[in-house]
Design a protein around this nucleic acid. Sequence first.
DNA 1: GCTACTTCCTCTAGCCGCTAGAGGTTCAAG
DNA 2: CTTGAACCTCTAGCGGCTAGAGGAAGTAGC
Lengths: 138, 138
Amino acid sequence: MVLSIGDLSRRTGVKVPTIRYYESIGLLPEPARSEGGQRRYGEAHLARLGFVRHARDLGFDIEAIRSLLAMASDPRRACGEAHAITRAHLADVERRIARLGALRDELRGMLACDNGTVAQCRIIEVLADHQHCLHERH
Amino acid sequence: MVLSIGDLSRRTGVKVPTIRYYESIGLLPEPARSEGGQRRYGEAHLARLGFVRHARDLGFDIEAIRSLLAMASDPRRACGEAHAITRAHLADVERRIARLGALRDELRGMLACDNGTVAQCRIIEVLADHQHCLHERH
DNA sequence: GCTACTTCCTCTAGCCGCTAGAGGTTCAAG
DNA sequence: CTTGAACCTCTAGCGGCTAGAGGAAGTAGC
């Protein structure tokens, strides 16, 4: 199987410039080239880019993905480190959810006024004065 | 009341370079200067920067804040636009919460294996093959 | 083999919202 | 009057891409 960069892009859902970007930062190995210098990919690239895409979708940052890739390539290695990375990421996601939930409540409260003038508008009022907030700390 | 940029920073919790950045993008008006050229702020700046800080904490982007500031400065203006901005932002926050919730479930599922070797590790497995996911679409 | 058209190439610059650092000046306390 | 903190401007960098210029290569139909 030989794929152009466009083929690889369509198969993985990763945009062409993003694939080249991943190569430039060393996340993907340099592929073979055609006589004319165009990139030619195989199964290994497809799998690796799929892995990367998937991890990005799950919100892992590039450095975490680098580590996960290193682990995936060594099937005998204990996956404790993968657990640590994933747990850390999960904790981060949970923090973000909590924060966004508080934010949502705050925004809903701000919307609980009719469309009067700014003078009575809770939105402007809340923004102008922290005292009106539901929570002390955002 | 006369405040240096450091005073303003301490009072609002906005870092000094960020205050200068806000000025550079026109979010804060240019303040008066001391004889030696240092910035000198008053109550109006304090209130405006507080508003900006608060809106940023609530996750509004700079352009939204620009609009909200324009509305706040005109107390007779109807606040329909402020509602529209806030509703749009709320919808965005809700989408992010839903997405992060799905992500959290996915990550929790991935952690449901013991620390064996990579060969049996669900984390690596899930990342390598989308079929293992809880959801079709992330 | 030629034309036309798409896809590919490299390179540079830009996005957001800051943050960091260099190299120099001003201010305020003692 | 000296010290040392805080200030100044300017440029560059962060993450993770995205956009555009200007040109070369690949491919399908005639």
